[in-house]
Design a protein around this nucleic acid. Structure first.
Lengths: 286, 286
DNA sequence: AATTCATATCGGTTTTTCCGATGGTGTCTC
DNA sequence: GAGACACCATCGGAAAAACCGATATGAATT
């Protein structure tokens, strides 16, 4: 039950060429090698792959059926070889990016598809965390790159650069929420209704007005709560436009929407691999 | 760029066991064989797979990444072996069934999922044809089994048996069609509106009332035309209930709906393989 | 320090792979 | 119909590899 890659290659090539000799020439081996390889493969498989009664061998039905399976094996084999080649050439085996819900956009996804095309063998991982959790994940080496709201200062082992595009944060409430009816809600109007706030795991954020306010660990959950009318919330504009258009309305409060600078952050300790530094550059050059 | 299955197996087993010796015992080979196989694989791949500084070898990051690829190769390898074993054991490489739109049902699909579970390596093909085309495809060996409206007699080289479940054929029109408003439409009422008929390729069916009637080669197209209100049509009940419920209404004409016997047909010349005869039996025993 | 269990390495045997040469067979040309 | 030609199967020997047992070494454990 052990099929050598040489035999499989010989079989596959002979099948497409329709000739053992042609396959041998293409593979740079002698004709007898290909002939014997296929004969041995037929013995191992227990099935005749070619009908040799004609001048040129033609695939049997079984051969036709098995050719597909053989191609799958060879394709997987090739992918393994390519992946190994990349790794041997210094490519990092995995790239982990941690993003805050705050920053994301259509451009982010376009960049990822570009990353996929450029590094098809790369294992990519995307984590979601807020604020200081992003830095923690990067410092401990769990992630290589982060996207988060720009901070005035970073720890010394963290590198950071600001993305050109700023994140838009607006105030939203459900269409049927009382605040939605007001032409220009004031800060007092907001205080009169329940607020929906993000609760980070390491909360350095003001838990002001606690008790009345509801919280959730991600903007997505927060948005769902807003859609159900539980209160108003600060939400990234792209998130609403993407998933809650028509169900939430933006509240025209003075000073809103805010636009927030977004930083790409990385660890100075762990050096980025080729894919990581490409992605870093790509995110910054927008 | 050629990785022997032995090396890959040794690597994969060592990775799950966390020990070369344990892998060797499991694979029935000597410890040195596994050690050398993995060492050679590392040379071929160009990357270190294990970190040997500790007592037991632990996967490197590259090894962890490549293990997935290796598993894919081995899985494809196994599938090839299983498929070959089936073929060697007399299994047909492909089963082609030709059905008429007339017969199909939820039970047909349930039977197919059962077929998939029972013969996971089988290549299955489903053709659609009407009436005599079904027999032609079977006679020429293009298909092994057929499902069609029961005929009073068959050619001598065709075997046939009747399925227990009968197909229900009703008269349908769009909800907004004039006929839909009638409490009990008569045959004259029908004649007063355009009929939608099936046109088989070898038409032995009466093209009566031609000129006025529109036709299509499949019940699905016919049904779409009925949904758009182009006329009334004879349609299999399952098709309407599945895809046009609420958009078509059944016309309560006297003598309708008809119930039609369905036959499984096969060629006496080509013997059925295991999967074919299983499916034949399964279709009949409902 | 001794024990234990693991891996790496080495020499030798067996197996597989590969090649060139040879012979048989169907096809095409003259 | 004879000959040339291209193709495939088979054979013998050489090269490569897979494999094993024995041995050395190294890291945890006692």
């Amino acid at each position: 039950m052990n099929f050598s890659p040489e035999s499989l290659q010989a079989f596959a090539e002979a099948a497409v060429q329709g000739s053992f000799s042609a396959a041998a020439r293409k593979l740079g081996k002698s004709q007898s090698t290909v002939s014997e390889a296929i004969a041995n493969l037929e013995i191992d498989l227990g099935v005749a792959l070619f009908d040799r009664s004609a001048r040129q061998p033609v695939l049997t039905e079984a051969g036709r059926a098995l050719l597909g399976r053989v191609d799958e094996v060879l394709a997987a084999h090739d992918r393994l070889g390519r992946a190994a080649g990349q790794l041997a050439g210094g490519m990092e085996p995995r790239l982990t990016v941690v993003v805050s819900d705050t920053y994301q956009s259509v451009q982010y996804e376009a960049t990822l598809t570009e990353l996929d095309q450029r590094y098809p063998e790369l294992e990519f991982e995307c984590l979601v965390a807020e604020h200081s959790d992003v830095l923690a994940l990067i410092q401990q080496g769990r992630a290589q790159l982060g996207l988060m709201a720009a901070q005035p200062a970073y720890p010394p082992d963290i590198g950071a650069a600001t993305v050109a595009e700023r994140a838009q944060i607006g105030l939203y409430a459900a269409c049927h929420h009382p605040l939605a009816a007001l032409a220009a809600p004031s800060a007092e109007d907001l205080a009169g209704h329940r607020a929906l706030r993000l609760n980070t795991y390491l909360d350095d954020v003001t838990p002001s007005g606690a008790g009345r306010c509801w919280s959730a660990p991600s903007y997505l959950l927060l948005m769902e709560m807003a859609v159900f009318g539980f209160g108003w919330a600060e939400l990234p504009r792209w998130l609403v436009e993407r998933f809650a258009v028509g169900r939430l309305v933006e509240l025209p409060v003075a000073g809103w929407p805010k636009s927030l600078a977004v930083d790409v952050v990385w660890s100075r300790g762990h050096r980025l691999g080729p894919a990581g530094s490409w992605l870093q550059q790509r995110l910054l050059q927008r």
